[in-house]
Structures are given as C-alpha cells and as structure tokens.
Design a protein around this nucleic acid. Structure first.
Ligand code: MN
Ligand code: MN
Ligand code: MN
Ligand code: MN
Lengths: 152, 152
DNA sequence: CTCAAAGTGTAGCCATGGCAACAAATTTGA
DNA sequence: TCAAATTTGTTGCCATGGCTACACTTTGAG
C-alpha cells in the first residue's frame, strides 16, 4: 500500500483497480457482522432495557450458539463487555460504532424510501446495502432525501 | 417456517420481521461470490478470449489457490466447466447468471453516477451494493437514471 | 528441442459464522 | 422453597474463502 501514484489516472479495466474494488467488499464483510451486532445491542438496551443472547438470536434468526461465538469475537475486539450469564453491554468504542451504524442505516433507508421504494422493501435492502456505501455516497443520499422532503 | 400469518401486517420492530432482513443478507452473501466470478469470467472471455485462473486471481486480488477452490465449488454447482490446466468456461446457467449480474451491476453503477456520485466511487460502491438490491429497487434505479439522462 | 518460467493443482493451515447436542446457571411460579 | 423452564455456555461438527508451500503441467525462448 501507499506506493507512489503520481497523477492517479484510473483505468476502469485495469486489473489492479478491479482488485481494489473486491478488496473493499471483502473488508466490508469483515466489519458488517460487528456493525449489525453493536447496532442491535444498542437498540435492545434502549427499547428493552437490556440486550440478552436469546433476543439477539431471535432478531438475527440464528442459534444462540452462533450469537455466543460472535459475542466472543466482539469482546476480543473490544466492542462488547459480557459477564457470564449476564446481559450484554457495549464498550465506549462499541457505543460509538453503534451510533455511527444506526445513523448510516437510517440514511440509507430514508433515501430508498425517498426515491419511491416501498417501505418494507427499503428496509430489507438497506440491511445489506448500508455496509457498502461510502461516505461520499452517503452524503449524496442525505442531500437527496432532504431535497425530496422539502418538495413534498 | 410457513406458519399461518393471515393478514400479514408488518410491524417494523417485530423480531421475526427483523430476522427476515438478516436472513436475506446472509442469502446474498451465499450467492455473491458465484455472481462476481461468473461475471468476471464472462468479461474475460469476451475481452481476452479466455478466462484463466491467474487473471481471476489478479482481478479479485486473491491467490490462485483461492480461485481454484472457488472454481471447484462453482463447478460442483453447475456454473463453470473446467478441464485440468485449461482455461475456464461457463455453463449455460453460468452464462445466464453472468448476463443478469452484469446488467444489474451496470444499473447500480449508472444510478449512483446519475445521482452525482463520482465515477470512481460509484464503481467501488456498486461492487458491494449490487448484491443487496431487490428487483423492485433496481426498477426504480433504472427509471431514475433514464429520467435523469433525458434531462441532461 | 529443451528446459526454465509461467500457470495450475493440491494439501494443509486459519478465521468466520452457521448448526445440534449437551452441560450449567439463572429465573420463575406453584 | 425448590423444581421446572428458560437462558446461557461449550463442544464439536460443517462450509466458505482466505493463505503458503510444494508438486505438476504447459508454454515459449533460445
Ligand atoms: Mn444495520
Ligand atoms: Mn446490516
Ligand atoms: Mn459485479
Ligand atoms: Mn460484486
């Protein structure tokens, strides 16, 4: 990384350029589990008072064993605090990430609705799309939604 | 699954409804490797005359061993035909999927550019987003791009 | 024609995130 | 209170898609 790239001309068919795209998608996949987990944990703490393994399992549609394994990783990565047989908490870093993800999720959902996607479909699509939208695109989404709302 | 759900009212905070969203994302992840592979194989056959393992590796930014393993799966799934030490071919099903994915990829890229996302960023984002966009949303993307093009 | 380089295949390792089955702790309600 | 139900934890299995190292085949330059 950080080779010298003087004028940085992008040739779309350039193999290395293509590799960059796929690398970025793979990176997104690395982080998206963590993102969805901290987001849902934050939501549960707000709406239910606490985040329990069994609720995460139901909401994600996976077994509690799977949740447990992921939580172990998130703990290792410093996003989640868990004491045995107790409900889950977020670290400061986890809370920060959750806030960022919730905001982003909302921007994507609102945008899809703004361009006319039915609410239920917008919510389905946003769950996946959110993890692949760059900051620049997000900004454009936000501006578009704002503009549309002023009109209507 | 397939419990009786008479009027099917969607409550956004409903845990089962939430599980549906995440299940859909997981399904997309199951298929997206296959999608990107057949799309790139089709492109290489068109532009280079043949699709070779080493080119796929370069374009995806992974080792040739990884490509080989994925190709094995795609062969098992009836999308790719490969003879030892020979270049890769698509089955009819593979070609069909490739065409569908290329079209979808193009629609997403064009849409992002149409709403003002810079070309290079649009191409980055599209590579991930394409796999999470429903048919309904795609239709709306297409209509929006068409409309925008008429204006400009 | 030869043989070195390039390409391909394979084995074995890893991390992630699925699962079922079983074990342990906690909570609940009779 | 205390036993049953619920929740949580753990183990061991699987598939995917990463990697390196090494083996084999094909290709092409000299
Ligand atoms: Mn989300
Ligand atoms: Mn998501
Ligand atoms: Mn694509
Ligand atoms: Mn893609």
């Amino acid at each position: 990384m950080t080779k010298e790239m003087p004028p940085k001309i992008i040739i779309p068919a350039d193999p290395e350029h293509q590799a960059l795209r796929f690398n970025r998608v793979r990176e997104a996949h690395q982080t998206e589990t963590a993102e969805d987990y901290v987001e849902l944990i934050a939501d549960l703490i707000e709406t239910q008072g606490e985040a329990r393994v069994v609720d995460l399992a139901t909401r994600f549609g996976v077994s509690h064993a799977t949740v447990n394994k992921v939580i172990l990783r998130l703990n290792r990565e410093g996003l989640v605090v868990n004491k045995k047989y107790r409900s889950l908490f977020l670290t400061d870093e986890g809370r920060e990430l959750a806030a960022k993800c919730r905001e982003r999720h909302q921007v994507v959902t609102d945008f899809l609705k703004a361009i006319g996607v039915p609410d239920d479909i917008a919510e389905l699509d946003a769950e996946g799309v959110e993890h692949h939208v760059s900051a620049e695109t997000l900004k454009i989404f936000k501006a578009f939604t704002r503009k549309t709302r002023k009109i209507s």
